[in-house]
Design a protein around this nucleic acid. Structure first.
Lengths: 105, 105
DNA sequence: GACGTGAGTTCAGATGTCGAACCGACTCGG
DNA sequence: CCGAGTCGGTTCGACATCTGAACTCACGTC
């Protein structure tokens, strides 16, 4: 569990993974949909790549352009992310609406 | 999803919730099992209480002593945490062993 | 050349984390 | 009574990380 959280115990990483699971692959799209600051997203994607959850693939040489794809390990995290989303819809959204905590990382 | 992560998108919060799910209720025990720094744990527990995932209950007046219990919303997060644990055992532990990223929070 | 896009990088300030020390409210035994 | 110990935190300074805004690079298009 602690190992899992070492890799994905981070808001932006999980949100990025969710977008990748939807089939989004471009940096700007992931960034736009998640709202992550660009530096944070770049760092998280690098971590996820280093961790083997995500692979980076060149889709254009001129100009050089990369896209991001889930590995097997990344794909197998999707049911967890789906479950978290469902829980969130049921509980977290109402709780945040009412009187959630300050947005904290 | 983003709302869910506002509440639980934090390593120590998730680890604390896992212990609460096991039935651990005392501050010192949660802290010991999770390895969270005391100040971080205190802050996370306060957030979780404010968010309605955890409730605090006085179990001793002299000296004043509180324990922490999961609410319904907190309990319904346990399957998600369980799924994350299973994923972690299958993928994260080997990945971290091989060449995971720097431990980042 | 000017302009626009995508994919980042940089940076100063803000915020968070952490280890170690500390503190309060006790209880217990000498 | 006093000292030692437990529990449940709090405090603080040093350090780490995050963030918004600006910037840069490598192009392609007009």
């Amino acid at each position: 569990m602690a190992d899992a959280l070492t890799l994905v115990g981070d808001r932006w990483a999980l949100l990025a993974l969710r977008e990748l699971g939807f089939g989004v692959t471009r940096f700007t799209d992931i960034q736009g949909f998640t709202g992550a600051p660009r530096a944070s997203l770049a760092a998280r994607l690098r971590d996820l790549e280093a961790s083997g959850l995500v692979e980076r693939r060149r889709y254009s040489e001129h100009p050089p352009r990369d896209e991001y794809l889930l590995t097997r390990a990344g794909q197998d995290l999707m049911p967890v992310i789906g479950a978290l989303r469902e829980w969130g819809e049921r509980y977290a959204t109402p709780l945040v609406r009412d009187h959630g905590p300050d947005p904290s990382g």
